[in-house]
Each structure stands twice: as structure tokens, then as C-alpha cells.
Design a protein around this nucleic acid. Sequence first.
RNA 1: GCGCAAUUAGCUCAGCUGGAUAGAGCGUUGGCCUCCGGAGCCAAAGGUCACAAGUUCGAAUCUUGUAUUGCGCGCCA
Length: 554
Amino acid sequence: MKQLIKDAVINGLEQCRASGLLSGEGCPDFVVEVPNHSDHGDFAVNVAMMLAKAERKAPRQIAEILLQQLQSSQGPWQRIEIAGPGFINFFLKPICWYGLLADIYRQGEHYGRGTLGAGRKVQVEFVSANPTGPLHIGHGRGAATGDAVASVLQEAGFDVQREYYINDAGNQMDTLGRSIFLRYQQLCGRDVEFPADCYQGDYIRDEAQIILDREGERFLRMEEGEAIRWFACHGGEAIRRGIDADLQQFGVHFDNWYSEQSLYDRNLVAEGIEALKEGGHIYEQDGAQWFRTTAFGDDKDRVLVRSNGATTYFASDVAYHREKYQRGFDTVIDVWGADHHGYVPRMKAVLSALKRDPEDLQIILVQLVNLLRDGVQVAMSTRSGTFVTLKEVLDEVGRDACRFFFLMRRSDSQLDFDLELAKKQSTENPVYYVQYAHARVCSINRNAAEAGLTLPGADQVDLGKLELAEELALAKMLERYPQVICGAAQHFEPHRLTFYVQELAAQFHSYYNQYRVIVDDRATTLARLYLVNAIRIVIQNGLRVLGVSAPEQM
RNA sequence: GCGCAAUUAGCUCAGCUGGAUAGAGCGUUGGCCUCCGGAGCCAAAGGUCACAAGUUCGAAUCUUGUAUUGCGCGCCA
């Protein structure tokens, strides 16, 4: 629709020049936009203001000349006018909007799908929490965000893979093994000290108990190093399965779980370092191997291999990201906690060193969640063991409310999550507001069916019966949906969709409260059923992308 | 100290590629159920878009500076 207006304006401009009304050449890169106020029409064009200098004429004067030209030709508009400093405002015929409703029915659950991605391969890596403890509420926000970004990209036509990176190679796994082993020994009655740098959470003791029940006391006789390795391996896998179960409950499904250890097993870490070395990006100092990330804008160079021979976490990240592109992804998206923002330059440096466009790596920073209970901040730390898990929150407030809540802000904005507030299920929790709009249409449909009315098809509707300003506004709102998806995908901002469905629901509730859908006049009833069910489809689609259900009854 | 981000209504936040009179929710105040589901709707009040310069037809949006807040700055993961 926008393009149609743009073409018409360009065409009109050329004709004005051909007839000598305007001089100048070339066409400025003007904008067709949707004005904030409906008084300003459906679309506004700023071309006259941009031409003012080149034409040496007042913007309104240029607009007047263009207006004459446009009015003499055919177009989908009802009227065109000049306003403000020189905007040309287009008012379209209602049928232009109502005609688009047929697309929504024709495409159904596919309405909103775009071709922006053109099938290009994108990977979204998110959560990737260390398998040393259960997911907490902060991971939940990352999970909701990553999953929604992936879904939005899918809707926009990208070929998306969701991946979870398991940090199963560091010394934290050793700490995990030791922690469980110590609890195990305590459960066996041994008087051993449990140091502060071990994981304190109750789940450690639970895991130890499970192992004790299943395996008995045989590990007491095992050499300590060997026992710790066993506990690390089995404990890590058990915790990973627990994480997976929590994510399942949250409705998040990964296509791939990627082990950091596997990078070492396949020698990819050494290969990654070698690749950087070949590019001349590595030097040795104080017995360590350094990657010259400062050559690509980082603050300081980074160590890949320590003087004791151990590789750093960054080294496996180099290998990991290098391997992602070898797997054929055009764009790779990492979802990180915002406290890791200092790592962005060095990861971008990896791409530059590997001769990849740094834009091929997009990093979404998610602010940590500020968890409150009755307005009082809950301190969270994995080490101290005082954290609220994602599962606890899910059990309390439910999946839909939880996901919607996480997606109500842009990801790099702080989020206050008050558990008591979220549990109230009152107006503070807007997910019900949106779901209710959907359920209301379904309720209308049930009533319509009882009255012997069936949902009309596009060819059975007299669109002329939709003559209310509110109905036209709703139709326009529905037309915007695919653009919202597209914008959210381009900017990796799923919160745009959250805002959109809320706005659409609000507009529907308002309409519903003011007018009745089922009225005496059959043709009007059918037309309104046609409209509100298009709304239902769009709300359902929007919620599905956000990972929230659209119940028919509440 | 250096770097990154933020600063918009009483509170929490949107604001698209620079566009016309800056929006929403909550809270406050006052209304709306004989009526398809009141988990809803309507109305009112509420603003120096942190501050100051600059860029231009036009700035909450772009540039620079200042202030405040948060985060990051290891041969940790």
C-alpha cells in the first residue's frame, strides 16, 4: 500500500517536470508514513519539504502543484490534501482496507508471514546457562526473548535454528562434581567440611541423595579425583535434563544442544586458534597466547591460551562461533545477559579476524530481572543458593503470564518482576486482557452459531455495511500486522509485537463495548462477524509468535 | 580512570527511516451492567522528553559537551 502511494507520487513528480511545472531532477528519498493522527489521513508524504531547496519554492507551493497532478490521475484515494508545513495527506477509500481482510482469511495462521528472510539461515543461541544449577528467573527472560526472536524471524521468512550452548568444559564442572560428592559424603555420615566456593543450593544435596539411593556408598572407596569426575559428569547431565524439563514447561524447545566439551573432543578449539594464527592475529607474551582484538576496536588484547597451557573460555567461544558459520548460518544471534556487554567487542573482533562481516553476529542483551516479592527485592546468587527458579515462577503464575510479562519491555530495559503482583491475575497482568479479547470473539461466535449464523466468507459479505469509523480503524490496524512482524524481525525486538496485540485488543474491547456484533440486520451482523473474526485470527497469530496461548474460553 | 547503556506523566515503560497536537498500563478522580462474558468500557487530571549547544524546512529521535544512574573493565567461567 505504501509502495503504491510512493509510485504514484514519483509518477506525478515526473509528469510535473515533463510539463515544466517543476524544474529540478532526480527524486529525493522521501518517506511515505502513517501519521499519528487520523485527521492527517492514512498516509503522509514529505516530498514537497524535501524538494523546497532544489526547486527554490515554498514547500506548500510545490505540494500544490503535485496535488493538482495527482488529483487528475486515478488512484485508490478518496481525497488528497495539503497540511502543516507541506505534507501531502492521502485519504484512502474504505474498500482498500476492507478488501485486505480477505487476505487474513485466505492465509489464516500464515497471515503475517513475510519474505524478508528469503529462506536465509539464522541461528538463535539463547539461555545457555551453565549446567551447574536449575534455571532462575533471569534465565526465563532470556528464554522468552530468544524464543520470541526466533519465532518472529521464522514468521519473517528466515530459516531458524534454536540452539543451547552447554558450558560443560570449565572448572565449574569440577566444582559441581566436588559439591555433589561432598554432600554425598555427608549423607553417608562422614563429617566433611562444605566450603563456601561450592554450590550451596539444596538441589546439590537432592542430587547427591538420588545418586546415593541408586548407586549406594561405593564412591566412598573410590579415588577422590575419579569420584569427582564421575559426579561432575552425572550431576551435570542430571541438571541439564532438569533444565530441559523446565524449558519444556515454559514451552521452549531447542533444535540443538551444543556441548562445549565437544569442541575439544573434535580439536576445534586448537583449529580456531590456528586459524587466527594464520591471519597473524596471535602473539605470545609472558608465556601466554594473545589474540590482538585491539586491532578490531577492543579495549585490550585477550588471552586464548594461558601460560599454564589451559585454554580460556574465550578460546572455545572463538571455536564455537567459527564453527557456527561453517554450519552455514548467514546470521548468528546470541542472547546474553546485559552484564556481559563488555564481551561484545571481542566477539565482533573474532568475526573481523575471520574475515566475516561483524554484522553477521547480532548480540541481544537482556537486562537481568529485578525480582521482587511484595515489593521487597529478592537477592539472587547461584553460589549462595538464594534464588527463585524459573520453575517456581512457572508453577505460581503460569506459562502465559510469565512469557508475556518478560516480553513487555524491550530486552535491554530493566524489568521489575513482582511475584505477588504477577500472581494476582488482575489488570496488572495484561496477558489476560489480550487473551480475553480472543475469547470474546469466540464467545460471540458461539452466540452467532446458536442464532443459526455461520461465519461468512469474503464473497458473502457486504463490506459496505462496515460504515463505522471504529470498524475502519480496526481494519487498518489489522493491515499493519505484517509490518509489525517485519519490523520486529529486522530489529530483533519482539516487544513490538507485545505492544501491538495489546493495542489491537484495546481497540477491539472498545468497539465491543460500544456496539453489538449480532444485531437485527443480518447483513450488518455478517459483516461485523467477518471483521471481528479477522481480529481473532490476528490476535491468535500474534500470541502464537510470542509463545502465549489463545484460549477460546477463560 | 576508561568503556558500554540508560535518563520521556506520580510509578513502570512504548515511541519505527528525523515529521504535524509526545502515547499506553498502573495509580488518582468521576461515570457505565435490562445489553453478544464487567477479567471489560468511557471521561478527567497528569510533560521544560535530564541539561546546554549544534546539524535543518522540521529533533524525544542525529552530533558534541555536562550531570545523574546502572553495568563492564582477570592468564575466571
